[in-house]
Amino acid sequence: MKKALTVAAFLLVAAFLVVAATTMRPFGEPSHSEMDDYFLVNCQTEVVANNVVTAVVFDYRGFDTLGEATVLFAAVVGVLALFRTVREDER
């Protein structure tokens, strides 16, 4: 019973994802590109960088990068804490 329920839920979610993908707008036509056009036009004068992706990562959307750096730090601290407790238990 539980197995059948799992299979049914999986099939439902899979069908939902595939149908949603087939009914999206065509590949290669982004619907809202005003913000990215602003970045592409003004990047060389505002940030003076040729790589627009780096300018977006570190300047226009620096908060995302800050959160991402925090996640990496948290992962390192988590792995360290996990293995350190194990070592102290074994002593």
Binding site: F39, V56, V57, R61, D64, E68, V71, L72, A75, V79
Partner: peptide, 23 residues
């Protein structure tokens, strides 16, 4: 040009994926 913002967010997503996989 291709839109730059999704690529920047994909970069963020890749590093977060690495961190979660390690954990």
């Amino acid at each position: 040009r291709v839109l730059p913002t999704p690529q920047a967010l994909t970069l963020t997503s890749i590093v977060i994926g690495l961190a979660t996989t390690a954990l």
